[in-house]
């Protein structure tokens, strides 16, 4: 991480971004995230934090302002390139009740890695599970039977397995107890190259700049 800190390239630039849904308008976002940084957006709920992540991923359009990711403007042409460099962890990691696919946690991980063009390394999966306080027996359980907190940590291990340049984490510790929150934060610090983390509570990540 220290090597990357030297470069200080802006990974994500949020310029006067405003998002609107019908009558609801979020507050204006304005910040720059440099390589190697952890940026913790610590605002009240309803401020549009999750929507901001969705706007970065091109799932919703910002009403005003500009989002620049890896030097490219988020628009129709660039969005697929941009998404390829991002790992997104939504607040509630949900999957369809698929009728045909492997329903186990390992099946889910394998499916996401396939889509990401990453080869499954079971040794790494087990290592990450251990670091996040997850029992490796969960790999054979049905993914949808896992608790929200367990799913969040599976999602975090997927972020590390996918090895993308930017992590967008939406309340990654919202369903975790204090002990597991600590493990999750240590994990993010260890593996994430650059992170934008949304949280409603103080995460105390050293080296992160809070807003």
């Amino acid at each position: 991480m220290n090597d990357k800190l030297k470069n200080y390239l802006p990974v994500l630039e949020i310029k006067n971004v405003i998002i609107e849904f019908g009558d609801w308008i979020c507050e204006e976002f304005n910040f720059t995230l440099n390589e190697g940084e952890f940026f913790i957006l610590n605002k009240s709920s309803g401020s549009g934090k999750s929507s901001l992540l969705r706007a970065i991923l091109g799932f919703i359009k910002n009403k005003e302002g500009e989002i620049i990711c890896f030097g490219k403007k988020v628009n129709e042409e660039n969005i697929y390139e941009i998404r390829k460099q991002i790992s997104w962890l939504p607040q509630n990691l949900d999957v369809m009740k698929a009728p045909l696919h492997d329903k186990t946690t390992l099946g889910f991980i394998n499916n996401i890695l396939n889509i990401s063009d990453v080869v499954l390394d079971i040794r790494k999966v087990k290592e990450y599970f251990f670091e996040l306080g997850l029992n490796e027996n969960l790999l054979n359980s049905e993914f949808l039977s896992l608790s929200l907190g367990e799913r969040q940590r599976v999602g975090l291990s997927l972020c590390a397995l996918r090895e993308k340049a930017l992590w967008l984490l939406d309340e990654p510790t919202s369903s975790l107890d204090d002990k597991n929150t600590e493990l999750a934060i240590a994990f993010i610090k260890k593996y994430s190259p650059t992170s934008l983390i949304i949280s409603h509570r103080d995460l105390h990540i050293k080296g992160g700049k809070d807003e």
């Binding site: 799932f59 949900d94 999957v95 698929a98």
Partner: peptide, 29 residues
């Protein structure tokens, strides 16, 4: 299905899935 499973579809799309892959489960169902 397309409307109900927006989040899980977007998670697949964010992970690099094509639209065809991301909608294939809704299609099968």
């Amino acid at each position: 299905n397309m409307n109900d499973n927006k989040d899980s579809r977007n998670y697949l799309i964010a992970s690099g899935a094509s639209l065809k892959t991301a909608t294939s489960e809704s299609f099968q169902m």
